[in-house]
Simulated assay, not measured.
Amino acid sequence: MQVSQNARPVVGIMWMVVTGLLFVAMTAVVKHVGDVLPAAQAAFLRYVLGLGFLLPMIKPILAARLTRRQIGLFVTRGMAHTIAVILWFFAMARIPLAEVTAMNYLSPIYVTLAAALFLGEKLPPRRLAAVVVALIGALIILRPGVKVIEPGHIAMLGTALCFAAGYLIAKQLSDEVSPIVIVGMLSVTVTIGLAPFALPVWVTPTLPQLGWLFLVACFATAGHYTMTLAFAAAPLTVTQPVTFLQLVWAVLLGALAFGEAVDGWVVFGGAIIMASISFITWREAVARRSVTPPVPATKV
C-alpha cells in the first residue's frame, strides 16, 4: 500500500520506535548472558552466529573490486569496531542498562568533534556549544566524586570513541562503495578481528548461551533494517529525537527485569546529550550537511 506523503514522518517515527525496542532488547539479552562468557568470546559468537545474514552480501562484495586503499580503510574500521564491541559487551555485564544506553549517545558527539579536527568540517559556535552541553550531560551521568566510576563506565567511553571512529571511516567509504558492501565488510572484518581476542579466553558455551547470542544477532540485524526503513520514510531531524525513547525502555527494562534502581540523574544526563544531538542534527539539516550520525548507527 502506498503511504501518503503527509503520513511518512509518522511512519518514520514508528519504525524508529521499533528500532529502539529492538536495540534495547539486544542489550537486555547481552546483559542476561552476563559475564558467564568472556566479553571477547561473547562478541565473537554474536558475529559468527550472525554470518548467515552475510550470505546475500557476498556477491556484491566480490563484484565491488575493492582497491588496496579501500581494503585498508575497511580493515581499520573493523579494528575500531572490534574494540568497541568488546568494550560494549564488557560494560553490559557491569553497569546498568540505562547507563550503557545513555553513554552510547556520546558517539555522535565524538563524530562531530572528530569531523572538525580531522576532516576539516566547520564547528561554528552553536554546534560547539551543543557539544559542550552534551559533555556536561555525560558528567551528570558519571558524577565523578559523587559516585564510584566503574570499569564499565570507562569501557563505555571507549566504546563511544571507537564507534565514532568507525562511523567516520564508513562515511568516507559511502561515496565509493554501496551500503551493502560497507555492512558486509564490517561483518567480515569484525568477525576476523574478534577471533584472536576470543580464542585465548575461550570457555565452552552451552546451547542456551548460543541460542541467546543468536538472538542478539537477530535483534541487531532487525534493528539496523528497521532503522533504514525509518530513514527512508522521514528525515533525521524527525527520527533522531525519537531515539531518546531507547533510554526510557532501558530504564524500564533494567528496573523490571534486572532489579536495577531508577537513577534520575542518568535519565537527565541522557536527555541533555540527546537534546544536543538533535540540535546538531537540525543545524546540519539546515546547512544541508550530513556528518552527525543517527544514534542507532553506532550500534553493535
Rank of each mutant, 00 (worst) to 15 (best):
T159L: 07
S178G: 09
I169V: 15
V201C: 02
L157F: 10
E176Q: 13
I136L: 15
P196K: 01
H153P: 04
V190W: 02
L210C: 06
I140T: 10
V181N: 02
A160H: 04
G145L: 15
A160P: 07
W202S: 01
P200L: 08
G145T: 12
T204E: 01
W212Q: 10
L194V: 06
P196W: 08
E176T: 06
V181G: 03
P151W: 12
A130M: 09
M156W: 08
A155C: 11
A198Q: 07
K171C: 04
L186I: 11
E150C: 04
A164R: 07
A129H: 07
V148L: 15
G184D: 06
V201P: 01
P179E: 02
A170E: 01
V146M: 14
L173Y: 08
I141E: 01
V148N: 11
H153D: 15
V177Q: 04
V203W: 00
A164M: 12
T206M: 01
A155N: 10
A164C: 11
G158E: 15
P196V: 07
L161K: 03
V131E: 10
L186A: 12
L157C: 05
G158C: 14
G166E: 10
E176D: 13
Q172W: 07
L157N: 04
V181T: 03
L139D: 11
I182T: 10
A134E: 06
P208R: 01
F163P: 04
V190E: 03
I141N: 02
I182L: 14
L168I: 14
V133S: 10
W212G: 02
R143S: 14
L168G: 05
L173S: 05
I140R: 07
L194Q: 05
G211M: 07
Y167Q: 14
T204Q: 02
A170I: 09
A195W: 05
A130P: 02
I140H: 06
T191C: 04
V188L: 14
L135P: 09
V203S: 03
T206W: 00
I180L: 11
K171N: 12
A164V: 11
Q172Y: 02
L128R: 08
V201A: 05
V190H: 02
V133G: 00
V148A: 15
A165R: 06
I136T: 14
A129T: 12
A170N: 14
G145E: 14
I180R: 11
V131H: 05
S187F: 14
V203P: 00
A134Y: 04
V181Q: 01
A198P: 02
Y167K: 10
V133T: 13
L207I: 13
V177G: 03
V133Q: 06
V190R: 01
K147C: 03
L173A: 07
I180Q: 13
L161F: 14
I169D: 04
L157M: 12
I140S: 08
V146W: 13
I192K: 00
L135T: 09
T206A: 03
A155R: 07
A198R: 07
G211F: 00
G166W: 00
V131P: 00
